[in-house]
Simulated assay, not measured.
Amino acid sequence: MTENYIAINWNEIEDQVDKATWEKLTEQFWLDTRIPLSNDLDDWRQMSSDEHYLVGHVFGGLTLLDTLQSQDGMSSLKEQTRTQHEEAVLNNIEFMESVHAKSYSSIFETLNTPDEIDEIFNWTNQNEALQFKAQRINQVYQKGTALQKKIASVFLETFLFYSGFYTPLYYLGHNKLNNVAEIIKLILRDESVHGTYIGYKFQLGFNELSDAEQDKLKMWMYDLLMELYANEEVYTHALYDQMGWSESVLTFIRYNANKALMNLGQDPLFPDGADDVNPIVMNGISTTTSNHDFFSQVGNGYRLGQVEVMEDEDYNYGLND
């Protein structure tokens, strides 16, 4: 006799964090089509060819990583879930990663010519350092344990994305490409929830391991982080040396690597703190630096209920809220 198929019951919640995260994610739902990107064209025309190259290629890299997360990352995590509600949350995350990936194409369509877009995607699909980090994370998704997959996902969401996020946050601090930055801030708001939720689920499983098993997994985790960081140095220098920003970007990356470890309940590795990061970029992380909510530029009709402004402490999304 076949086992009965079980309907999900949102009136009986095994883990309240699942419900809180679902509500947080659905509350902050958005689509790129409602952001007036064409308003940034005047800024774009005044920027140099080096700046055009940088913006296009960091967004190409982000597109690749969001594609990985939407096509392989969440599906691999759904193979081992603790609750039905967790799987529902991961479905939401999977969809929003696709929204993120599409958003970059909307930016390309607005700012770049068809030939430039082709060049960006050709570069994205062939760049060795970019391909290394995508393939290394996907290797864990395909062959890793349930806890290793969660580590890889948090490293991707809270660490590896940030070499790309630096650029739009920098320009936002200089009052350029503000509508592009609105999309990035929306993505950041999502990623802060994704990384801490999956980190929380990791901690539940990690705390069930023996001390010896924990030590072995921690060694694997830090080895993976250093492997990814070494590659990130290569990727960052290739993108940012022409602008003279590489060292500042690497500080930002190390800071976010520590954030990823903290999401996983582990000790930070690098000495870099918030005070070491370019203050213009740090200000961009907090949406309180903006004088309007995310949707004010497209009118109140788009608000799906009250959209909360992300406070500085929300960069580490509070799962106990």
Rank of each mutant, 00 (worst) to 15 (best):
P268G: 09
D272I: 15
I184A: 00
K24C: 09
I35W: 04
E86L: 08
L250W: 01
T26K: 12
D312E: 13
Q214V: 04
E311K: 15
I93C: 06
S98P: 00
V55A: 07
K78L: 07
S153K: 04
I198T: 09
I253Q: 03
R45N: 13
Q71A: 12
Y229V: 10
N112L: 15
F121G: 00
G301H: 08
K78P: 00
K24Q: 09
T110K: 06
D241K: 11
K102D: 08
V249W: 02
Y302M: 13
F59Y: 14
I285M: 08
D275C: 02
Q16D: 08
V277S: 01
H85P: 00
Q28S: 11
V309P: 03
H237I: 00
M226I: 06
E213G: 11
Q16L: 14
T196H: 14
T113Q: 09
K176F: 00
A230H: 08
Q142C: 05
F294W: 10
E97M: 11
E191N: 05
D43S: 10
T196W: 11
T167E: 01
E79D: 08
E27G: 12
L319D: 01
L130F: 09
D50I: 08
A134V: 13
V58G: 02
D66F: 08
I253Y: 01
G299D: 04
D72S: 13
